[in-house]
Simulated scan of single mutants.
Amino acid sequence: MDENSQAIARSALADSTFAKTAAVFGDFYGFVGEVFKQMFTRRFQFREFVSQAWFIITVSFAPALLVSIPFCVVIIFQVNQLLIQIGAIDLAGAGAAVAVVREIGPIVSVLVVAGAGATAICADLGSRKIREEIDAMVTLGIDPIERLVVPRVVASTLVGVALNGMVTVVGLVGGYFFSVVLQGATPGLYLSDLTLLVGLPDFLASEAKAAVFGLLAGLTACYLGLNAKGGPKGVGDAVNQTVIFAFMLLFAANSVISTVFLQIKLGA
């Protein structure tokens, strides 16, 4: 094969790959639009929502708690080391609040939701797909998006918000212990400085982050689960893809939301 033929083959392969990628993104956005359309109807499956919310909490609560303690404490410990160097350890509360409320809380809580809850959702829907249960529902006139997807997406969103509050509290309490007991910060100043740089708008922005992250994780898990192919191996591949794609979306969304919030706050 001459060089021209190889170049033509590479170009055709690149075009085919781009077309497939564009088709997948288009299908995903269409799926998201249908989910939002079904989300605001009177036929919301409340019982399924409660069941899925409880399920996600059971698989996510303990991992979130165990991850938040070392994650928050390590970051706060390092920040306090810098404050000790400049003789400002009594500002430890302000540093802990900024680190935990703005970034660590939403990231830790929803990484756990994406890593534990979303993968379980994807595995459940993928198993139903390869057993042809989804096709049977469609044949019976039952919309799988309305019946299965919407409750899971809403549950993932609300559990992400709830876990963010829990991680925030655990992080600040752990920061208090390490700052006051181990690094010599003043207890009263630690508590009073919690609101020095962080206020109610920051906490609401943190909760909004967690909601967006949980929404993205739930949408990704449901989409990949409903499109699983190739038997059990396909379900396993979909679960692995859920973790990767969810994390990519979460970090991208975090960058955008953090930038927009800081610009609005500084502009105000």
Rank of each mutant, 00 (worst) to 15 (best):
L219K: 02
G87C: 01
P106D: 13
L219Q: 06
V256K: 03
F77H: 13
G184W: 07
G87D: 02
V138N: 08
L91H: 09
S258I: 05
G30K: 01
G93K: 13
V98D: 12
T168S: 15
G95W: 03
Q38H: 04
F49E: 00
C72M: 04
A155H: 10
V167P: 15
G115D: 15
L65H: 02
E207T: 08
I76C: 11
V159Q: 06
F49L: 09
L266V: 03
G218D: 02
A210M: 14
V153K: 02
S127F: 01
S68M: 05
V260W: 09
P201R: 05
Y29H: 01
G218H: 02
F261P: 01
S11L: 03
L215M: 01
L216Y: 09
S179P: 13
I57D: 12
I75M: 14
K233I: 04
V173H: 04
N240W: 00
S179D: 09
G236M: 06
V180L: 13
M39I: 04
Q85T: 00
F36C: 01
A62C: 01
A228D: 00
A210I: 07
P144N: 06
V149I: 12
L200I: 04
L219I: 01
A136Q: 06
A211C: 02
T21F: 14
V50P: 00
T186D: 14
F213I: 02
A205F: 14
R147D: 05
S16E: 12
G214Q: 06
S5K: 08
P106Q: 12
R10K: 15
I264P: 02
K37V: 04
Q263K: 05
T58R: 15
A217C: 08
A136M: 08
V101D: 10
L158F: 05
I89W: 13
G174L: 03
P232E: 13
G117R: 07
A268E: 14
